[in-house]
Simulated assay, not measured.
Amino acid sequence: MSELRGDTTGRVSRAPSWVPVGAWGFGLVAVGLGAAAMVAVQADPLSQGLGVASAAVGLGALGWGATSLHLSRTPTPRTAVAGLFVGMGVAVALLATAPGRASILAVVLLLALGVAVACGIVRGTRHPSPRSSLWGLVAAAALVTVVVVPALGVCQGAALLDADGTVLPVGTHHGH
């Protein structure tokens, strides 16, 4: 039973049911930003390194969300919040790289998701939420989808943007 405890006081830390789904949204946007930074037209080693870090944090958020739903509790809440803040810092740093290939909209949405998920985790450690409901998960998934899909679309657009503001073609088909 001690492995189910979320803290040393004996209470189980359980964030609201929307928090793992929000973590998935955060993870998807972080992976999208990371992938765009790694393959951007003018990617330099710094932006590629930040891209790898963003993708790693995003994959961690995806795994944490799945683990949280599987266990019906909030695993490693402090580590999760720290990971969210690292991911937010990396996203902001991507805006400052020389190519500047991070989408401002995607970064703002990532920051909003990160703050919301961190607040949900902290609230769950102080005031454990009742068990997850199916309707809460469906509503959270719908809301996160509405936020994440546009963010992923602008990540690709930012990666294809040339220094003069023109969008480069994905495939040129030269020689065919």
Rank of each mutant, 00 (worst) to 15 (best):
A56F: 06
D44T: 01
S47Y: 11
A96C: 00
V107E: 12
A36V: 08
S47F: 05
L69T: 09
G51E: 07
A61P: 05
T74L: 02
A91Q: 15
G83M: 07
V86A: 14
W64Q: 14
S72T: 04
G51H: 02
P75T: 03
A98D: 09
L71I: 02
P45W: 12
V39I: 12
L109K: 01
M88Y: 12
A80S: 06
A82C: 10
L71W: 05
V86P: 04
G100T: 04
F85N: 09
A35D: 14
A82Y: 04
T76A: 13
T76C: 05
A106W: 07
L94C: 09
A96P: 11
D44E: 14
P45T: 07
G58H: 11
T76P: 00
G49A: 14
L84E: 11
R73H: 03
A96D: 13
A36C: 02
V107I: 08
Q48E: 09
M38W: 05
L62D: 04
S103R: 09
S72F: 03
V52H: 00
R78C: 03
H70K: 05
M88K: 13
I104N: 11
G89E: 07
G89A: 15
A35M: 09
S68C: 07
L50M: 03
L59P: 01
L69E: 15
G51P: 12
G60E: 07
Q42T: 00
A37I: 02
Q48T: 10
Q42S: 00
R78W: 06
A96W: 05
T97V: 02
G100N: 02
A93N: 06
R73F: 07
S47N: 07
Q42E: 05
G83K: 10
A102L: 04
T79Y: 03
A93V: 00
M38T: 12
P45F: 13
V107F: 11
L46G: 09
A40W: 02
A56T: 14
S103F: 15
A98L: 06
A37P: 01
A40R: 12
A91Y: 07
L105Y: 13
A35C: 03
F85M: 05
A37M: 08
T74V: 01
A43M: 08
A106I: 12
A66E: 11
M88H: 10
S72Y: 01
G83L: 11
A35R: 13
L71N: 06
T76R: 13
L50Q: 11
T76S: 10
A37Q: 14
L59M: 11
M38F: 12
G49Y: 06
V57R: 10
M38A: 10
L105Q: 14
H70C: 00
M38P: 12
A98G: 05
R78A: 02
T67P: 00
L46Q: 03
A43W: 12
S72C: 02
A61K: 11
G63R: 15
A43E: 09
W64F: 02
A102E: 05
G49W: 08
L59G: 15
G60K: 10
T79S: 09
A98R: 14
P77N: 01
L62S: 06
A93Q: 04
S54G: 08
T97D: 00
D44Y: 02
A80L: 15
A102C: 10
L50D: 00
L94F: 07
P45Q: 08
L110N: 01
L46H: 04
A98E: 10
L59I: 13
L46V: 12
A37G: 04
G51D: 01
V57D: 04
V57E: 06
V57W: 04
H70R: 15
